[in-house]
Amino acid sequence: MANLLWLQGGACSGNTMSFLNAEEPSACDLVTDFGINVLWHPSLGLELGENLQKMLLALTSGQMPLDIFVFEGTVVNAPNGTGEWNRFAGRPMRDWVTDLCKVANFVVAVGDCATWGGIPATAPNPTESEGLQFLKRDHGGYLGKDFKSKAGLPVINIPGCPAHPDWITQIVVAVATGRGGELSLDEFQRPKTFFTSFTQTGCTRNMHFAYKVSATEFGQRKGCLFYDLGCRGPMTHSPCNRILWNRQSSKTRAGMPCMGCTEPEFPFFDLAPGTVFKTQTVMGVPKDMPTGVDKTGYIKLTAAAKAASPRWAEEDIFVV
């Protein structure tokens, strides 16, 4: 039996909603099939008031073991580094986070806010928010870059806005069943099993990407969303087109550009007007290239691809 505690800091509950929609395995499977004891969760916990406080104190004192501490949302430090803007069970949430991270075998940050600060940490960051071990791309965050949980791992980051339900439950199961030590993490402490390939991997518009045919308006079923509509699929690490959402689809499959929400800089360009749903260019060339491609190579590739593009690439091939 592995004890799991889930708390929320500066959050919209989006990752909780995502978690509750998990299918493989589901949130119920965690309890019935994998022996996870969900001590408390903002949407599922039964304890209130003093009872909850007692349980948290039992955990922080070591009376009750804490195997997995899941945190959703930012660590709120405002005002003036006190954390008083986000109080929970009688004290600033950040103080609970400090104490719980000391006793937890594994610490899992779920969603962009808990991993890198996400939208709340966007400039001017009035809540003085930060992620557990990162603030955007800067390693450190609330716990500091040297933090390791009792099991010897840094915070396991499962980013996304929200994270896909099954990324959450599959990592929790891996940890709860003693396979946490086998997790291989990338430079941003994301499990490589999910965050090595790109959002573009498996995208149904890849043929249009290859032949440089652009979607120029929403609703078009032909064309790639990268060239004009700001899609970040070619430079975002996520399996969104391999592990589909609701087992059905993905943003790009539905004609919605990837917004790069599993990367530390999300939301990109600080949401400045004109930067969302529009590919940012400098003198007509994309500011952000597909990962690993340089400007010269990109221009050469475009010329070759355009010259080779077949007629069908300009048409809607998804005819029902």
Partner: peptide, 10 residues
């Protein structure tokens, strides 16, 4: 010819 808005065949 190399512009993203150009449809070669059309």
């Amino acid at each position: 010819m190399e512009c993203m808005y150009y449809l070669v065949h059309r």
